[in-house]
Design a protein around this nucleic acid. Structure first.
Lengths: 397, 397
DNA sequence: AGGTCTTAGTTCACGACCTGGAGGAAGAGC
DNA sequence: GCTCTTCCTCCAGGTCGTGAACTAAGACCT
């Protein structure tokens, strides 16, 4: 329940934000159309836009003839007004990317790591940031912020608990902030990939959606009413450890019957092995592809994959029933491999588990951006803040 | 993403709303404290409050000595400013209640029904409304609205699909509106009971919560960021048909392994019967109590109840993992019966299924209001609208 | 009784804001 | 060159919240 005052200045900020967000999301628009979209008066649009142009946030970008009248001047967010950086912290790699506001990649720095100790990760993120700044030639004062995506639970933009990295209450934001002037925002990796899909991928235009990610493990990003839902202490979206087979297979989280214990790539391969299938000694991804390729020839492989689609369908149906989204976007490397081959069957199977009504209202799609979009998603964090603040950049002094 | 303009008048409405909501929820407050709570300036509070008092929405209610200064005048929402009605449409009963704004019951009308045909239900709701108006002596122009709770999926405050009532796309709001001048709002029964618990029961003060209801069937009301979450087409919260035992018991929804097929009272009794237990031929509720009472003496009963708590724990844990609420409120008649006896064990079992982090952040409580609170919850709909509109009552002409 | 202190609430000038309407700018068509 | 259409800007007018000064009302002390 919103119990906060509104002052006459909040009003302007809110209108600047509405204007800027509309320009950012819809691309080239004239002042006239903006008035329509935001239901602001033409006078206010003009007033606000000239302010935004004077500050350099927005720029004019050509004009379009209108049938027999003064041509409309198109507006867009100035791509080079500021820049944003995104980092992806994985188990084996730290990647940092620099974008302009149109989300064009200006520079990229990858670094393989063999230890995930927080201080080492921090060092590589900071080095990566310095590297992309150097190679792009962007002045660091022009960088709005660095969004960092970590595979773990992030509480209050700050403390990270990550089992896979072996992190427990790591104050990542603070540690990074000590090494740079660039403002840091930290968030969960699955959420960031979800964010990228929502803005630039298969989630575009949806306001209630779930991005379901299946890799070695299983996670999900929830989007409610157009913005990411995180729960009380931002650990919402733990889809992977939902019980779907009571008393079933033991999961690495300690519980039994978790979704992840059936459809996570690691678990699928284990089930295949237990059923007598031969899992090649290659890395997980190659092995998973071989399993899928073996479906035509091996009965065991066929059964395992079939079951996997079934379990996955139950897990997806649980999302459909509980959160009634308009769209479910399936991704993660294993999710994509499965989806490419079995999406129609999955859709059908979801229908068998979900209730008629919510099922009829949902569409199930595949991710469009691939897994390299994590840093892109992380970089949307500072952009989101800019849009929310109506293009006002906090001074950094 | 909020892309709407703000005008100088929205500002006033928004501040009136903040003020009114604070007074309503926190009870007796002075102007001074209100300024603090809403972070509005003393001048604005004074200004807005005198307006609200002049309109009759708010009234002064005595004063309190402050140590050595002018005594503070306490304010409250005027209980008799307007009135609200709530209706509960069940399978066997239609109940209508009339409340003042302090939610004191002024009148009640119950009517047993033996058919659930929409026209009959509409007739009884309208008759009930007329009856409570007549017996309370409240002028009908002073009734802000009638909230109607139905056991079914309500889309856009209008069309109801309800399996248990045999309704398919019934335009309930419109049908009711044709018979009365009182504005009608329709919503799902589980949501309304949840709403009542959130405002006046075990959910008070929580902003992210789930009210889990177990009766003959199973449902849940989701509350995110302080307001009820409904999904794209308002059928969110279908917790009962979440798959928790893949390939398990057939559910009446047609799918297999639904939570409801294990912990719904009907299903529990069925499982008891199948296990060789003797279910008395009494009504479901009596039978359920007898089953619980038999736990001490019958091994079969003990096993069934034990399993039920286990399945329920898995279902609750799924909520904990997925939505990361700060509170889970367990209710429904069967939920309460189970909870009264096994709440500690349930809490423990949830811990075995849920992830450590979200589990540590949630508290699991029992409903405080009992099942008669459905009409009360429904009556909060018009109150909510009043608070949202800052005490401005739409003219009805 | 009277003065002083403390806290609560009110009044008013001010600056910030959006809006409607008038007016200017820029092109098309004749 | 005139008119028409469309886009954009400027200005007067009205609304709003705020801070500072002010009034109200009681307690406490002498």
């Amino acid at each position: 329940m919103d119990v906060r005052r509104t002052t006459v200045r909040d009003m302007r900020r809110s209108n600047r934000s509405a204007l800027l967000t509309t320009i950012y999301r819809e691309g080239l628009l004239s002042r006239h159309e903006l008035g329509h979209r935001t239901s602001l008066s033409a006078a206010s649009v003009s007033n606000l836009v000239s302010e935004l142009i004077a500050e350099g946030v927005v720029e004019e970008a050509g004009s379009v003839d209108s049938e027999g009248g003064r041509p409309r001047i198109l507006l867009r967010v100035s791509p080079a007004f500021r820049y944003v950086a995104g980092a992806e912290v994985g188990e084996t790699r730290v990647r940092v990317e620099l974008f302009d506001l149109a989300m064009n990649v200006l520079a990229r720095a990858d670094h393989q790591i063999d230890t995930t100790s927080p201080t080492v990760v921090v060092k590589h993120v900071l080095e990566g940031l310095a590297a992309v700044i150097a190679s792009s030639g962007v002045r660091s004062e022009l960088i709005l912020g660095l969004g960092v995506a970590v595979a773990g639970v992030v509480e209050g933009n700050e403390v990270v608990d990550a089992q896979t990295l072996g992190w427990d209450a790591v104050p990542l934001r603070r540690m990074l902030a000590e090494g740079t002037e660039v403002p840091i925002q930290v968030d969960n990796g699955a959420n960031m990939l979800g964010q990228a899909e929502m803005w630039f991928g298969a989630g575009r235009g949806a306001t209630d959606a779930v991005v379901a990610l299946i890799g070695s493990g299983v996670g999900a990003a929830l989007v409610a009413d157009g913005s990411s839902y995180r729960g009380t202490r931002s650990s919402a979206g733990e889809w992977g450890h939902m019980t779907i087979a009571y008393g079933g297979r033991r999961c690495r989280c300690g519980a039994a019957g978790c979704l992840e214990a059936y459809v996570g790539a690691e678990a699928v391969l284990e089930r295949y092995r237990e059923a007598g299938g031969v899992v090649p000694a290659a890395d997980e991804e190659t092995a998973f592809v071989e399993l899928l390729d073996a479906v035509g020839t091996s009965e065991v492989a066929a059964r395992i994959v079939d079951d996997t689609v079934g379990y996955l369908a139950a897990g997806v149906a649980n999302l459909v029933n509980l959160v009634n989204p308009e769209r479910i976007v399936l991704g993660g490397w294993a999710g994509l491999l499965l989806g490419e081959r079995y999406l129609p069957r999955l859709r059908e199977a979801v229908g068998e588990h979900a209730l008629r009504q919510p099922y009829a209202q949902v569409t199930i799609e595949l991710c469009e951006l691939g897994r390299d979009a994590v840093a892109l998603g992380a970089a949307t964090l500072p952009v989101l803040r800019l849009l929310r603040d109506g293009g006002v950049v906090p001074s950094r002094s």
